[in-house]
Design a binder for these strands. Sequence first.
DNA 1: TGTTAAGAACAGACCGGTTGGTATAGTGGA
DNA 2: TCCACTATACCAACCGGTCTGTTCTTAACA
Lengths: 192, 192
Amino acid sequence: MDTKSLIIDIATKLFQQKGYKGVGLTEIIKACDISKGSLYHHFPNGKEELLIACLQYLNEEITNDIVDIFNRYPTTQEATNAMISKLIDNFEMEGTLIGYTFSSMVSEMASLSDPVRNACAKLYTEMQTIYYHKLVADGFSNDEASSTALMVTASIEGGMLLCLTQKRAEPLQVISQVLPKILETRRFKTSE
Amino acid sequence: MDTKSLIIDIATKLFQQKGYKGVGLTEIIKACDISKGSLYHHFPNGKEELLIACLQYLNEEITNDIVDIFNRYPTTQEATNAMISKLIDNFEMEGTLIGYTFSSMVSEMASLSDPVRNACAKLYTEMQTIYYHKLVADGFSNDEASSTALMVTASIEGGMLLCLTQKRAEPLQVISQVLPKILETRRFKTSE
DNA sequence: TGTTAAGAACAGACCGGTTGGTATAGTGGA
DNA sequence: TCCACTATACCAACCGGTCTGTTCTTAACA
């Protein structure tokens, strides 16, 4: 693997674990076993440029992953369950949740750097777009699909936060159980 | 207001906006217009002790606030809507979302400091407990109430994250519209 | 094929500034 | 007088970033 990809790969994980300010350049170059000169050769504009590169990399990784899962299952509900299962497995194996989240970067940098904020927004949008199309295919109306996709994104993101604080996977499991309530195509109206 | 409370009050907001590592002690003492000696008199163990004090303060503030809202509305659904409305108003007025969130601290510190992680976990638990009791009063079974309370917490937390990245309040509005799907006491079974 | 030039890739010393934290002196009210 | 409280000066460690210099790769040319 070339140096630049190596840097992005390792820095991504570090940023996800400790946040932007939580990781120093020294830590990154040590983990990569490279020199500072090398890092600044590949990322002349320094740390923030590296972060954005990491977010773009993450975007592709996550998007591909989700598309893959969503192609393997017929309904959004099944696909979502599979996706969450994968997150949980990862969490229980690795100990940390570095799956589809980058919340630390969002809340840290959203108010400070517009480029970073936009990179994060793009990632969330693409995730929601995947959900949206599947939901439309499930028979949801465009409006319903759109708001449901947002709800799925938010609840999973929030669920990951809860898992991190509790150091256990249960919150995501619960969410996976509750999500069908909003994912199932209604066959009967319940009220009104 | 005494110095200690002043420090906690201001530091809390700064931590929420910029995260733990994102705020320096210098910034805090300048915002409080106090000296470093004063800060270390009240928090001899330094920054992390201050953070935990902030989280505890936040816990009380948020809990009281939510309890208050939940007492004013008959059902969880109405109370939740009111709560989200308040969040959105705050967001649109202040420009930042410093309401019921501290996600930056969670994802930053969860893997680094157990005391901080536990303080965050406690806060989430208390929020869920409030929701839980209201849901039971609404007629939910204990199990359903428990998982629904978690879902509400997660989706609101995730919704705030989405609002921050997009710099607009729409995600929380959508969530407020979707939440009834899991909050309404079912009058008819929809499938099975 | 051997020589050389160019530039990409890398190394590491170094910079000013800031960090969290400490030590000590001073202040004002009981 | 006492002591909770505050102010000031200071520290080593670290931060992101810049610098100069070296090595490696590649391509052009005779």
